[in-house]
Simulated assay, not measured.
Amino acid sequence: MLKTNPTGKAVDILNAARMLMMDRGFNGFSFRDVAAEVGIKSASIHYHFATKADLAEATARTYRQDFEEAVAHIEATSAPERMRAYGALFVTTLRDQDRLCLGGVLAADVASLPEQVRAEVRQFFAEQTDWVESTVREGQKSGELRQDLDAATYAKMFVSSLEGAMMVSRGLQQPQDLENALDVLVQLSLA
């Protein structure tokens, strides 16, 4: 496990692992694949990450932290606008990078993930649903969002729906479908 903030070659390794995992999942990449992307020998990866599980954990953690930082910088003023801006993070990943959310990709592989990676996946989704739930509660308090929504249930449905719509949209090669799904999800919450 990488114990400090990654720098230099470790960052290159993490970035390559992230892209490979977003495309192929945990089971679809190897140290050899990462090494080829970075331009090093696969044995060199062991200097920074002893095992594939350590590399996947560090990759999932940095993705979670980067996503958390992006969410923290959402500057929309109304709850519906914040929810749209949140969903736009998914839309941008699919439309601009033709990739899926790493959290969703790893969740699909959860049965074969090492426990340390599962823990990162659980934390990713806990943080995301907590943020959406908080936004829903604020929107209900301000009268922007429906009072009859159970905020915790809606938050889980919102995040789950974005993840699923992202996968289906990519599978159909129709990224606009994700944007349409986001619009419907927000519309369903409006007062």
Rank of each mutant, 00 (worst) to 15 (best):
M1H: 13
L2P: 02
N5H: 15
K9I: 15
K9M: 09
V11M: 00
A17M: 03
A17L: 06
M19D: 04
M19C: 04
R24C: 05
N27I: 14
F29E: 06
F31W: 04
D33T: 07
V34I: 12
G39N: 05
K41E: 07
S42E: 08
S42H: 09
A43K: 13
Y47D: 09
A50I: 13
T51F: 01
R61G: 02
Y63F: 06
F67N: 00
E68N: 01
E69W: 05
I74A: 02
E75S: 11
A76D: 11
T77S: 07
S78N: 11
A79D: 01
P80R: 10
R84L: 08
F90Q: 01
T92R: 10
Q97V: 10
D98W: 15
L100I: 08
L100P: 05
V105G: 04
V105C: 05
L106R: 09
L106H: 08
R118I: 10
A119W: 04
E120V: 04
R122K: 14
F125S: 07
F125Q: 02
F125M: 05
F125V: 06
A126K: 13
Q128S: 08
T129E: 01
V132T: 06
V132F: 05
E133Q: 09
S134Y: 13
E138G: 13
G139Y: 12
G139D: 06
E144R: 15
L145Q: 03
Q147L: 12
D148F: 02
A152H: 10
F158K: 02
S161V: 14
M167C: 05
M167K: 14
G171R: 09
L172G: 05
P175S: 08
D177H: 06
D177L: 04
L182F: 00
L185S: 04
L185D: 03
L188C: 08
L188P: 00
L188W: 08
A191T: 13
